[in-house]
Design a protein around this nucleic acid. Structure first.
Lengths: 162, 162
DNA sequence: AAAGATTGTTGTTGACGACAACAATTGCCG
DNA sequence: CGGCAATTGTTGTCGTCAACAACAATCTTT
């Protein structure tokens, strides 16, 4: 499998190329690339998440931060960043936003005066239940799109990356 | 499934929170969210793609553009953008770069003087075989990571998004 | 106590998606 | 046919995000 490209339909139409419209465009080797499919899917799923949680104005990354803090109160920023695979520099801005919205608070740790212990505020505790309810609705949208078993299989396949 | 958060381990350690290190941090509801798993996986897969094709300096989006043009010579920018789900504004910059590298050429269409017919250059035709060889190696990395059947199943599940 | 590592912070860079506006051109409809 | 809406490529802006680099404050190690 070295040479021999040409992929059929080569030289379809040179100057003109009147295809029916916009369908019928071959992807050639692109089909068969996991990364391409995953990219398109990830785009769709994030857009749906954003749309579904639009009424509370929570984006996927914000949701992940709130969830981790809620489940592990007192974590440092470093620990959260490492756990979620985001840069600690990025987490600073994220927390700034969440703190302004009174969902999260940074408490200066006495044990290590460099670090902050992260907690949900009372308001944060309250609101996160609403976020989770909407997130569950989003997850149902995913099911409707790819099927219930396929979603479960997907989670199983990708479990090693969480 | 409305209230009842608290998720165990609540109030783990307040000020201090000495966890073994950085493992052992629960994700709570995050596990079970397809979007989170997909995001992490997409990050990994793109990094591997970039690394594997670093010697030719081709990124995933560039590769997808080259592939589609190679398989469908004469396409307009609009058609390529629509097919790949990228904005035509973004495609302009992408093509600028690929054209400077002599991989792609824009040919003014005589049928529709607004549009450009996109083609690979001779050099582009030559080099893309190398790109595809490296991309295949990357795909093998994916197999090694998630398993051969899982990769196929993944492609099947997400086929509707390509 | 000195050297080295860690934590939060700030700033920069570049890829990327989403929009808006524009000129040139085409297609359509009265 | 003529004018008006739509399309195509282009430019520019904005906001998100990952990847770095640098820095001060604070541990940790020796």
């Amino acid at each position: 499998m070295t040479a021999a490209r040409t992929s059929l339909r080569k030289r379809a139409g040179n100057g003109a190329t009147r295809r029916n419209d916009a369908d019928e465009i071959g992807l050639d080797a692109l089909v068969g690339h996991a990364g391409y499919a995953v990219r398109r899917f990830q785009l769709w799923i994030f857009q749906d998440f954003i749309k579904t949680l639009a009424e509370v104005d929570i984006r996927p990354t914000q949701y992940s931060v709130l969830t981790v803090i809620g489940a592990n109160p007192g974590l440092s920023q470093m620990a959260v960043a490492k756990r979620l695979g985001i840069e600690r520099a990025r987490l600073v801005h994220l927390l700034d936003g969440l703190e302004q919205r009174k969902l999260v608070k940074r408490i200066k740790s006495k044990a290590d005066r460099r670090s902050h212990a992260l907690h949900l505020t009372a308001q944060g505790e309250t609101e996160i239940t609403r976020f989770k309810r909407l997130a569950a609705r989003h997850e149902r949208n995913v099911e409707d799109r790819i099927g219930k078993e396929n979603r479960e299989r997907l989670l199983q396949i990708l479990a090693g990356f969480t």
